[in-house]
Design a protein around this nucleic acid. Structure first.
Length: 714
DNA sequence: GGCATGTGTATTTTT
DNA sequence: TACACATGCC
């Protein structure tokens, strides 16, 4: 009675898939068929009679969830996957809170702030409190968000977070906690949630008497992928979701934990068996992805790790080809050689899409991108600066956000500052006159059983800053008047709030339900925005394409609310996402940060900038844990490769201070490839290199040997 | 009060 | 290189 999709699984995979009830921990090394196992598990559960909508599949990206569910559909031959609750923690939190949020006195029509919005709000508060004009430099907005986020996600004390991760901010602790205090309140006043709130409120939801059980009981099975990269709050959420029903499966690999900067903690996976007594542990060790020499080199990197789960990955994929360690003179040479190798593999039959160039930081590929463009090699870049972070996209979204949530101060501020003749002062006054912050407070929840919550709408209704703008616009300086009037008109058109309409309860606070389709709204807004845009940005002719793309994406949505939320929770990761599925004949090389490459695989992988200071990043080497994470990062990069791995290290970096200067410094090969593991690689370099800089090679080896000795002394 | 311009500085990874 | 902040002019 073995289902067809069980054929071809190995013993351990089958054990995980067929697991009955109760907690299951799958330690899945790189390339051991983790995705397949999860997909099979979903198929199996559905086949055994579990209703698809009673399965919760938590993944790291929406794409990962979609892929697994599609695979599950193929196995069962059913089209049920769309009913499974699949997605990231944040996306699922958003969905649940819109259904159950009322129990926490959380209005269900909140909007979600991304990190940029959160930073802007921090900045507003920072200025309001007069902290920007201190004699000493107060932490920047982005730093404030990082501190806040870590404190929340790690469930840590501010003092400890500052001491450990932001020691240079310790003197400002009073100001920081004041900012956070206002920030927390302001988010409620503005009816917005940040990323951290989504998790935090989900956790609170689980703990709320009555509703907590209702939320948990909604699911018969909870499955979690990439469990090594979850944080303390996410750990709590799972505990809360499985208080009674213990059907939970988590899959992860401690050797691939690379998100500690987002407060992810390895403790979740290590302590899982204690949190869920009776856990069955299954370890997947057969690697189906990489050739044996690639695996040997990767394992050698992890063998030097300070602590780890012992597992020994093995592969049946024999090969004579060791990974190539290519020593380049400098970065321009690295670009040249990478391009040559990419073309060579293409000519030998590996399409560009089956090849990837991986790097530590988004800007590490800057020079390569220029070179690829020069050679007409098409590529798509993942990670790094995203579409959604571009100023003109944020501008356009600010219009939509204001209409969606007229209490969103950050977006109002952004919108008003776009108008010529309006600066921070006037913007503040206009917002005050519109009553942006005067959102009627949610009435106290009558208690646990009040989840159906009703009747509290009356207080929230009857008043909207948007209606105020349309019916009774505040006065603005003469220079801004015409512009402001145009804004008023376009907002009225797009929001569906007609001037002079009676203040009827259905439409006054919730104009969002009416109005033209989102794409039409964007089109109209662009009429208003285009002149502003062209004035504000020198390179507007390039950026205008982004606005067109935004309009195009909007065409897929009926609801403005969904459009904004999706864009915030699942932003397009590369230009490819924007164009929809690529044409069949279209081939492109993948450029990706290592973080964004998680879970992916390619036939040929090129890791560039394998130099100390790049991998590990200079920013991360101040403490031991940081270096260890960089090591795992390098390991993740190496194990993405199936057939052929190139590791490149430029030996010389130019300082681009001035064009005339040829100042440069010498780099060391990454410390993760000490002399002792060098035999696992095939060394290559350009011929002229040794003649050019003969003294470099011995110098490096000495230094590396010194580090190796230090390792032993530990 | 807005805005253009100049100066100093810090610079990873992402939901 | 971009951003935060100061300065000085309208």
């Amino acid at each position: 009675m073995s289902a067809p999709w069980l054929n071809g699984l190995n013993r351990e995979q089958r054990e995980a898939v067929m697991h009955g009830s109760g907690p299951l921990l799958v330690i899945a090394g790189a390339g051991t068929g983790k995705t397949r196992t999860l997909a099979c598990r979903v198929a199996h559960l559905i086949d055994q009679g579990t209703a698809p909508d009673r399965i919760l599949l938590l993944t790291f990206t929406r794409r990962a969830a979609a892929e697994m569910l599609t695979r599950a559909d193929h196995m069962t031959g059913l089209k049920t996957s769309s009913r499974v609750w699949g997605g990231t923690f944040h996306a699922v939190a958003n969905r649940l809170l819109r259904i159950y949020g009322r129990a926490l006195r959380l209005p269900t029509d909140f909007t979600v702030m991304d990190q940029g919005d959160a930073a802007d709000m921090m900045n507003l508060i920072r200025n309001e409190l007069g902290l920007a004009r201190k004699e000493r430099r107060f932490p920047r907005k982005q730093t404030l968000v990082s501190i806040y986020s870590r404190t929340v996600n790690a469930r840590d004390k501010l003092t400890h977070v500052l001491e450990r991760y932001f020691p240079w901010c310790q003197d400002d602790i009073d100001g920081i906690s004041e900012v956070f205090d206002v920030y927390t309140r302001r988010k409620r006043e503005n009816n917005v949630l940040d990323y951290d709130d989504l998790l935090l409120f989900w956790k609170l939801l689980c703990e709320a008497p009555g509703v907590g059980d209702a939320v948990a009981n909604r699911f018969d099975h909870v499955l979690v992928d990439e469990y090594q990269d979850t944080n303390a709050v996410q750990g709590d959420i799972l505990l809360g979701m499985r208080k009674h029903n213990k059907n939970i499966m988590v899959v992860g690999d401690d050797a691939q934990s690379i998100y500690s900067f987002r407060a992810a903690t390895i403790r979740n996976i290590l302590d899982f068996p204690e949190h869920f007594p009776g856990t069955r542990v299954v370890t997947l060790e057969q690697n189906y992805r990489s050739t044996q020499p690639i695996l040997a080199a990767s394992n050698a990197v992890m063998d030097q790790a300070r602590e780890r789960f012992t597992k020994s990955l093995w592969s049946e994929r024999a090969s004579d080809q060791k990974p190539v360690l290519f020593t380049c003179l400098d970065e321009p040479e690295q670009c040249t050689v990478v391009c040559q190798h990419v073309i060579a593999h293409l000519e030998m039959g590996t399409p560009l899409m089956r090849q990837a160039v991986l790097f530590r930081a988004g800007h590490h590929s800057d020079q390569l991108e220029v070179e690829l463009a020069r050679r007409n090699i098409p590529f798509h870049k993942y990670g790094g600066l995203k579409f959604i972070e571009a100023a003109h996209i944020k501008d356009m979204l600010a219009f939509l956000r204001v209409m969606e949530n007229p209490h969103d101060e950050v977006s109002w501020f952004r919108v008003l500052l776009m108008l010529e003749g309006i600066g921070p002062r006037t913007a503040r006054r206009v917002m005050d006159e519109l009553g942006v912050r005067n959102r009627p407070a949610e009435p106290p929840s009558a208690g646990a059983d009040d989840s159906a919550g009703n009747g509290d709408d009356a207080r929230a209704r009857g008043f909207s800053p948007l209606r105020h703008l349309i019916d009774d616009p505040p006065d603005v300086p003469p220079a801004a008047r015409q512009h402001f009037e145009q804004l008023r008109v376009v907002m009225a058109q797009c929001s569906g709030v007609e001037a002079g309409q009676p203040d009827d309860a259905e439409s006054s606070e919730r104009p969002r339900t009416s109005g033209p389709p989102v794409a039409t709204q964007i089109g109209r807004l662009r009429h208003f925005y285009d002149p502003i845009f062209q004035h504000a940005y020198d390179n507007w002719s390039i950026r205008v394409r982004d606005l067109e793309q935004l309009e195009q994406i909007a065409g897929r949505y009926r609801s403005r609310s969904r459009f904004i939320t999706d864009l915030t929770l699942d932003p397009p990761t590369s230009t490819s996402d924007l164009a929809g599925p690529p044409l069949l004949e279209e081939d492109f090389l993948v450029l990706s940060t290592i973080h964004s490459a998680k879970g992916c695989e390619w036939d040929v992988v090129h890791i560039i900038h394998a130099a100390d200071g790049m991998i590990p990043s200079d920013m991360a080497i101040s403490d031991e844990a940081g270096v260890e994470e960089e090591r795992r990062l390098f390991y993740v990069a190496m194990t993405r490769s199936k057939d052929m791995l190139y590791v490149y290290c430029p030996l010389r970096y130019y300082h681009r201070r001035s064009r005339m200067s040829d100042a440069h410094s010498y780099a060391q090969l990454t410390r993760f490839l000490p002399a002792s593991s060098r035999h696992l690689f095939e060394p290559r370099a350009t011929q002229d290199f040794e003649a050019d800089e003969p003294q470099l090679q011995p110098l490096n080896i000495q230094e590396l040997q010194k580090r190796l000795r230090e390792l032993w002394r530990e």
